[in-house]
Design a binder for these strands. Structure first.
Lengths: 367, 367
DNA sequence: CTAGGCTATGTAACCGGTTACAGTCCGACT
DNA sequence: AGTCGGACTGTAACCGGTTACATAGCCTAG
């Protein structure tokens, strides 16, 4: 009972959190099994014993070793989030949504962004084995998505976010980019605009293409002007929006409205227009896409297609948790979220005060 | 040699990545030790054997199990990043910097944000044991920082980011918020402003207090007007900046310049001023802090104190890696990064064209 | 010819937990 | 009184790797 090896006995109580379950067991004079039972609230343990163990745990400030636990239970309580890039408000919102939903459920979040090529994505994906229980994946380029075919995800519960539709057997969550863009064009058309310029996103990006498609659909359907000169290249950055703005001013006849494929470009464009002395929305109406938090603080406040970004992240979490529970035996589900039209001052709609508040901006569900 | 249990033998070659090292060993007719040696490039292995093993690895698309490996090597190749909140461009920039630096070194990044209270921080910190090799911690509230005393970090290499100076034995990296604020006030003073309003950040935030301190220091030192009415409460959000802007307009005599403790509030304030028909910088000059990427696309482009956010993140990574190598036996180092004055249009400095380009904005190192 | 040394490989302990299974103890039931 | 069943606890296998040490074969120097 008292035959303790004097080797590494009772630590000074509170020095770091590196004790093992064995030490706890020894000091509490029980077996590791019992300690484990107490820690995980499994199986019956006499209350007196439990107290004794808990006491030792506290005095040692013992914390179970994550990797060790993961090894046997085969779950890591960690979710991976793989993003094409981490830049700007869109991603901070997304991560925020995912992180808070995850922590609420007791999960950790492993993020990884900015991937150059297929090789790298595959490499990262590989190293994820044994580190995460599930994966949220956002890869707007179809090519990159193919990278998944030969890598772990096949066995790892996965949710695709805003990815090109594929035959991959995963759940997917998409924003109806096409519908959102159509709605915005219709809105501008309704305000009397017939010559509407469009600032494109990067064309290897699925969302960017969908938004462009929606723009074209609506222009054609409504009989607005179709003119290649109205479609300006861009890459989702403010910088690109700014350059696009400058180019748009040179187009003749000058468009009366500009629709940017995302808010960052709309903001860049707004900057360029103002610098050129153009009045917005007086001379040119402007609209963006995403409704990032800062959009309402532009002046004029930016009209945009509202994507509930943080909620999107949270929802992806839910779906992932779902997929993890069902463990594969379940046909993949595909959902599409409808965005909303958020009308503020920049498009010159009547009855919209120059107010930033969401309540005073007009939020329309699109059909 | 051929005595294989028919139980779970040769998988269809390429089905997921769930083989174990034992299966690889069996199929390659070697021991697990040899497989391990090949995988880690340790110890001598005959080339023929190596090839055979590699072949099997490929055909099984075998990937070592992260948790298992972590258990023995006692390292997880993962770094934890604990943030007070994940919101806005500041954090997306920071995470971007950290993530890219980490991946370059072969590390994963575990983020966790938005912590309410001490309890929660401690809980998260605890669950990090055995999951990360090091920690980057940003906790501007001193109270929250105290939470660290009784938790793992004591044994975990840690770098503090923008935290209140403490006696905690960790490396720390700080931006010279006070100096930056002083420099900005000096700049505004130099432009002729004597009545400079300041929009505060949340006062339980260390950075916010430092910036406020810098403002007061400079105002006092320069003999500009000191007036409690010039200090407006805020909380770093655009919304707060907007309300502050409204309140500032009611102050009499009206300040001729406004200095916001961060860019988000400056942007909110700019919005309020424009809505009220005030011209910036004509009637009121405006300046912010952080120089988030979007600042240059405001109109007028926002003058700000430039903090190289992404670089800050990357640098934190470097320091952490350093601390991990030295493994504790090394006195904590404290560094302070000097911000730079980024002069653009919003403060009305002469000779600054309304241009967004960094090259045409004026960037001054402060002393 | 043999002791050593080097290369290539296998054996088995170990990392820190979880858990199936096997006691042990004790009160209740027949 | 003898059985039985639950409550409580311990033993040991196992998760999937890494690695110290042992072993075997072969070559070279003494």
């Amino acid at each position: 009972m008292t035959a303790e090896t004097p080797s590494r006995n009772a630590e000074p109580a509170g020095s770091g959190g590196n004790a093992t379950i064995k030490e706890v067991a020894r000091l509490a004079r029980v077996s590791v099994a019992t300690v484990s039972r107490v820690l995980n609230d499994k199986g019956p343990v006499r209350d007196e014993t439990r107290q004794r163990i808990l006491e030792v745990v506290r005095s040692l400030s013992y914390v179970p070793h994550g990797a060790a636990r993961s090894l046997t239970t085969n779950q890591t309580d960690t979710l991976g989030v793989l993003l094409p890039d981490i830049y700007g408000e869109f991603f901070s919102e997304l991560i925020r949504g995912i992180d808070s939903a995850a922590r609420r459920r007791g999960y950790h979040v492993l993020v990884s962004g900015s991937h150059e090529d297929r090789e790298e994505v595959q490499a990262v994906l590989r190293t994820l084995r044994g580190r995460v229980d599930g994966l949220i994946l956002m890869t707007p380029s179809a090519d990159m998505l193919e990278a998944l075919r030969s890598v772990p995800p096949e066995t790892l519960p996965t949710v695709l976010l805003n990815c090109p539709s594929t035959s991959l057997p995963f759940d997917s969550l998409n924003v109806d980019n096409r519908g959102g863009a159509r709605a915005m064009v219709r809105h501008l058309f309704g305000l009397g605009h017939r010559r509407i310029a469009f600032i494109q996103g990067p064309l290897d990006n699925h969302e960017a293409r969908e938004r462009l498609g929606g723009y074209r659909d609506a222009v054609r359907a409504l009989g607005a002007e179709m003119d290649p000169a109205l479609e300006i290249r861009g890459d989702f950055s403010e910088e690109a929006g700014c350059r696009a703005g400058e180019r748009i001013l040179a187009v003749r006849p000058r468009p009366t409205a500009v629709f940017a494929a995302n808010d960052a470009m709309a903001i860049g464009c707004l900057y360029a227009l103002r610098e050129a002395g153009i009045e917005v929305p007086g001379e040119v109406a402007l609209a963006g896409f995403d409704d990032i938090p800062i959009a309402r603080y532009m002046s004029p406040a930016l009209t945009s297609v509202g994507v509930p970004i943080a909620e999107l992240g949270a929802l992806a979490m839910e779906r992932l948790l779902d997929a993890m529970r069902q463990k594969g035996s379940r046909p993949p589900r595909h959902e599409s979220l409808p965005p909303a039209l958020v009308v503020r001052g920049s498009c010159g709609a009547p009855g919209v005060p120059g107010d930033r508040s969401t309540s005073r901006s007009i939020r329309k569900e699109i059909l």
